[in-house]
Write a protein that binds this DNA or RNA. Structure first.
Lengths: 235, 235
DNA sequence: TTTATTTTGTTGTAAAAACAACATACTTGC
DNA sequence: GCAAGTATGTTGTTTTTACAACAAAATAAA
C-alpha cells in the first residue's frame, strides 16, 4: 500500500495526469492544482489483481474510489453465490460515492477487479467538508460530487430500464440499444463477456446465448465476440 | 396555479409546516427561516387529481418536486403501455432532483399522482447556485441535496436487489423483507395494491397473486389487503 | 504446435412465468 | 341495500426461462 505524500505526488501525477484530468470529481480543477488537492484529500493508490475484492459486502468505507487503470465490477452476490453485476466502472470513473455521502453503515454491494487494476482512494469527508484552510477548491469538489451523484442516479435508472423488461429478448435489445446510443453508432463493443452480460441483465447465460443466436438468425443484429451491430431499427 | 409570493407564504406555511419540517431538503433550516427560503427558491404549489401526470416522459424540467400531501408514482411506460413503477414518493419526499442536477435534456420517466396530491415545486438552479445576496442557507441546501442524491442512489440499489432475483417468489420475499426491516416489525403495510406491486416488481399480477397464495399456504407469510406478516425467518 | 483451460453456443427437459379467462371479494355511489 | 365498478384470487394453457449437459470455438499455457 502506498500512501501518497506530498513529495510523491509529482511522480504519481506524471503517470496518471491524463486520466485524472478526465475524472469528473476534478472537473474545473486546473492541472497544476491537482497535486495539492490530492494531498488535501489524503489520496492513496492501491493495486489489485483480477478477481481481487476491492470492497466486500458489509465493509465500512470512508473513501471514494477512482479507477486509474483496469476496471471494476460493482456486484451483488446472494446467499447461494449467484452474482449480479450492478455496473462496471472503467478508467477515470468514480465509484462508492453514494455510500460515503449517505450515513450508510454497511456496504450493500461488493467491488471486484475485472483485471489488474489500480485504484486511487480519496477521503470522502474531506471532499464535502470545507477544510480548515478554507481551501477554495472544495466548492468545486462539492459541485462535482452533486453532478456525479445525479449522473449515477440516471445510470441506475437506465440500467433499471433493462431489468424491467419482462423477457430476455427485450432485455438484450434494451441493453444493446443503449450501447449503440452511447457509441452513437450501430456498431459498438460492449464491456462484458457473455457470463458478465448475463449477470448484468440478470438472466441465464445459456438462455441468453440462445436468444442472441435467434436475434442473429432473424437478422436483427450481428455479433462477433464483444463487437455487436444492430441491423434493424428495433431499438 | 398559485405562485407563492412572499406575503402568501405565511398562509401556506401554516398549513404545511409540519410536512416541510420533515423534508430532507430543508434539514437544519429553522422554522422561521423557511418562509424566506421558499420565496428565494420561487416555490409554487400545485394540486393534482388521481392519475394526473405531474411530469410526462421527455418533459424538460427545471424544478424539484416535494410531495406535500397524497403520493406519486415514478413510472416508466413502454411502447405498448406496459407500466413499471420505479418508486413511490409519499408526503415529505423530494422527487426529480437527479434530473435537475444533471444536465439531462429529457425526462426518462413520468410522475403520476396516485391520489389527490399537492406538490410544492422549487427551482433547482436556485438551490445549487449561491444567490446574489450570498444567502447563507445555500450551503445547507447543497449539503442536503448531496444527502438526498446519495440516499436516492441507495434506494435505487435496494430496489435493484429485488429485480435481480431470478424468480417471482424471490422478488416478493426480497421486497417484503425490506418492508419488514423498514418497519422494524414483521407485520407491516405496503404502499402498493396488487397491480402496483406487480408493476414495481416487474412481474405479472396474477402470477404474483398465485405465488403469494403459495407462500401463504406454506406458512411463510400472512396477508390481508395491504397488511403483511412474515412468519418464517426466511428474509 | 500441442495441450489444457476458458468461453461461447446448442440442445432437450423441467420448471416457472405470462397470458387469458373467469370467480369471488371488496368499494363506491346511488 | 343494491348495482356497478374495481381489486384480488384461481385455474388451465402457452410461452419462456432455467438448468444441465455437452459441443465447438477461442485463448492461454506448456
Amino acid at each position: 500500500m502506498l500512501f501518497l505524500q506530498q513529495n510523491k505526488n509529482s511522480k504519481f501525477m506524471k503517470e496518471y495526469i491524463e486520466i485524472l484530468k478526465k475524472v469528473p470529481l476534478f472537473n474545473r480543477i486546473k492541472d497544476n492544482e491537482l497535486s495539492a488537492i490530492l494531498s488535501c484529500l489524503s489520496a492513496r493508490e492501491f493495486s489489485y489483481k483480477k478477481d481481487d475484492y476491492i470492497w466486500d459486502i458489509e465493509d465500512k468505507i470512508t473513501e471514494v474510489g477512482i479507477v486509474l487503470s483496469g476496471s471494476v465490477n460493482i456486484i451483488k452476490e446472494d446467499y447461494w453465490g449467484n452474482r449480479s453485476i450492478i455496473s462496471k466502472a472503467e478508467s477515470g470513473k468514480v465509484f462508492g460515492e453514494a455510500f460515503s455521502c449517505s450515513e450508510t453503515s454497511k456496504l450493500p454491494i461488493s467491488v471486484v477487479a475485472c483485471e489488474n487494476t489500480k485504484i486511487l482512494f480519496v477521503n470522502y469527508k474531506k471532499i464535502i467538508t470545507v477544510c480548515s484552510s478554507s481551501c477554495k477548491f472544495h466548492s468545486y469538489l462539492i459541485d462535482n460530487m452533486v453532478k456525479i451523484l445525479a449522473n449515477n442516479n440516471l445510470k441506475l435508472l437506465r440500467k433499471m430500464e433493462h431489468l424491467v423488461k419482462r423477457n430476455t429478448r427485450e432485455k438484450i435489445l434494451s441493453f444493446l440499444s443503449e450501447q449503440a446510443e452511447q457509441a452513437k453508432n450501430d456498431s459498438f463493443e460492449i464491456p462484458f463477456d457473455r457470463q458478465e452480460l448475463a449477470d448484468y441483465l440478470c438472466v441465464d447465460r445459456s438462455a441468453m446465448s440462445n436468444e442472441l443466436s435467434k436475434l442473429k438468425d432473424e437478422k436483427i443484429l450481428e455479433f462477433h465476440k464483444n463487437k455487436f451491430t444492430l441491423l434493424s431499427d428495433k431499438k
